[in-house]
Design a binder for these strands. Sequence first.
RNA 1: GCCCGGGUGGUGGAAUGGCAUACACGGCGGACUUAAAAUCCGCUGCCCGCAAGGGCUUGUGGGUUCGACUCCCACCCCGGGCACCA
Length: 826
Amino acid sequence: METEYDFSSIEQRWAKEWASSNPWAAPRVPDPARKRYIVTMFPYPSGDLHMGHVEIFSIHDAIARFARMRGAEVLSPIGWDAFGLPAENAAIKRSVPPRKWTYDNIAKHRWSMERLGFSFDWDRVFYTCEPTFYRWNQWFFLRLYERGLAYRKEAAANWCPNDKTVLANEQVIQGRCERCGEIVLKRYLTQWFFKITDYADRLVDDLELCTGWTERLKTLQRNWIGRGQGAEVDFRIEGRDEPVTVFTTRPDTLWGATFFVLAPEHRLAEELVAGTPQERELAEFRRQLETLTEVDRTAAERPKKGLFLGAYAVNPVNGERIPVWVGDYVLLEYGTGAIMAVPGHDERDFDFARTYGLEVRVVIQPPGGELDGATMTEPWPHEGVMVNSGEFDGTPADRGVEEVTRWLEQRGIGRAASGFRIRDWLISRQRYWGTPIPIVFCDRCGEVPVPDDQLPVVLPDDVDFTPTGEISPLATADEWVNADCPRCGGVARRETDTMDTFVDSSWYFLRYLDPRNDDAPFDPDVVAAWMPIDQYTGGITHAVMHLIYARFFQKVLLDMGMVKDPEPFPRLLNQGMVTMGGKSMSKSRGNIVEPVEAIERYGADALRLYMLFSGPPEQDFDWPEEGMTAIGRVTFPWLGRVWRLCEESRATLDDRPQQAAKADDELRRSVHRTIEVVTRDFEELSFNTAIARLMELVNEAYRYRSAGGRNPRVTRELVEALLLMLSPMAPFLTAELWRRLGHEHPIHREAWPGFDEKLVAEEEVTMVVQVNGKVRDTITVPAEVDEREMLRRALASPKVQAHIDGREPSKVVVRPPRLISLVVAR
RNA sequence: GCCCGGGUGGUGGAAUGGCAUACACGGCGGACUUAAAAUCCGCUGCCCGCAAGGGCUUGUGGGUUCGACUCCCACCCCGGGCACCA
């Protein structure tokens, strides 16, 4: 027997054994009834792991290990999201090639993961910066291209002057670069997009299938996609043949449209003014807008500016002639870039109308109100009854929306439609360390996709990757850029932008299932056997980036017939952030806490347990200033208690008599009750309470021993159940003690303990007696006590008598066997 | 402005409408020790009281109920998302 818990040598020995044998390899194809695919968002390798990683991997690993013990065939893979900006930035700063920097960090990550005992299937590891992975990014790009889902266009793009690349909308947070915080500028560039807007409806609708998502996350995604339901209406412009369509969520207010507004950048605007006195004014108007950043242009209090174009539109519902303006509050990218303005019932149109002296007309009267367009000081954007609207007068506005839409459809001048806030996904990046886009530009054939059999387009190694902001670094690699046109064999140049790294993370979880496939991204049959992911874990920070892109990808693959599930991760646990002083840990803030010190001082088990015990997984965890010493006060001493309990039980396992004392019996009951509750805690991913229950059990075992309890069979049962339940959270200590108990079979292959129903059922319970809603006494009663007996015992209590004071209860509520509530008149 | 999430001891946190404050940290006391550490055993929401006991308490105010941290209504505060999106 060893009284000293020598965590360091124990953990290092087991870590070494596991690293060399990969005990957690999963089968290629699982038994469908028993499969559990459990994935945690793969890390980006900058530096070592930090405490956020430790928390999420500890949660993930507890889930995986628990599932295995319950008889599931578990796949718990890991890989690295290895392309991306930080590698380049670090490389520029220290003149180390990005590849080397990345691989060095992956080595650190892997060492820490093994040292922390995470039970990943190491046979399936891959890095996204390897051609064997990214060639399939290129392959998918070509499939999207064939379907018209990947396209190139000139548009105003978000440009980060610090990172010298464009960004997707999702990577711009309040006008600033998600990565570096720099204010984002607008630049007109020709860029590649994925047509995620084609899937916007499905991305909203299928949130219904994400049953294991929090409301919070679903709201985030709904807000981001921003679906507005309404109608499209066709307006004729005087002197032009083809109509102009507008989008509105309020077709019921159509009769109140008193002018028509185009986005300043709208093509139609320049066509309308061509050759008129307004031509120069419009050019000037546009020039002034261009100097504004997105932040300034959308600033809330900025007064609206507009310009009358001298043209007129015709309102299709009443034939009225209304002036056409451009207005800086109308966005080209939303809806059709053109609106019907209803100043009586829209905040922005009202402001604009008052600024330029345009007519305000009331077509919705609020209940009891008598609005007057000439004198009202604010619009009425709420419900009411339609007026001045021809045959619809008297219709309530909410019903009017539907009825007018139907009416428009019958006349062929409008139709039901949705507008979306989400924009197509801009995937081009003017940086080096990413997947080359498999397109060449031929002088004769133009834009030509690289044929499948010429993939991968390998990222060249010796490139000056310093971003200049003018051209992509790859453009300087002449030898690489110059290529033969796949179509005509003539002179051509490669596309020099690389793909957003979120392309990699949009399907990496499918590659784990067939990681060495050289003929296809994956075998659809293998994927069908493992998918969908049974439990996904990761941070909330990816709510509108990774988690939307990956869902989009999955739906494209569904349409291609490559996968069978509409949603990749119907069950998702968003663990909270690990912060310090309320701020998220980041390199630039210098508040990153790495796990090495904790592992050295207290061990991996103590650290893992500490992260799990600190609160529910989805809650943020503020790492305390004295976090290190907290581990030394909270979980480390308790592991010592477990150690001593088990080792001492081994020393006294032999010669004691085995009479069934009452204390022995009680302890056995506690063991079985703990198994019942802890099992439920694991199922609900409530690891903090699971640990609390195990602590209680250990406390009870100590009390039993200090009261002289020594029954070897009871002690053994307790110790074994304790180790089994603790093993998913503290794998090293439990593996060691399990072996010391004499087991040949490793604990991680043991079955999760079951409990005896008869032992869990209680013989005696504490009955609570309430008088007028207040607890006045607690009485121990047999579990099968009946209502009459409960009343008899309650009334026999002197404490209860003191409060009812001889009066007859006017009402008695009995909830056998735990509660009786008496009501007496005061 | 719209939409989510949250508010419980000194601290992290626990509670299918049924003993609020489990478990743990911290604090206080005791045992062991020449002593300290480690370990083991107790006590620890607030107020009144010598005590027995009583009163109060889950952001605030109301409501439903025999009974509310939990359900309903209104409000306050904190965190997050969206926001000139027609």
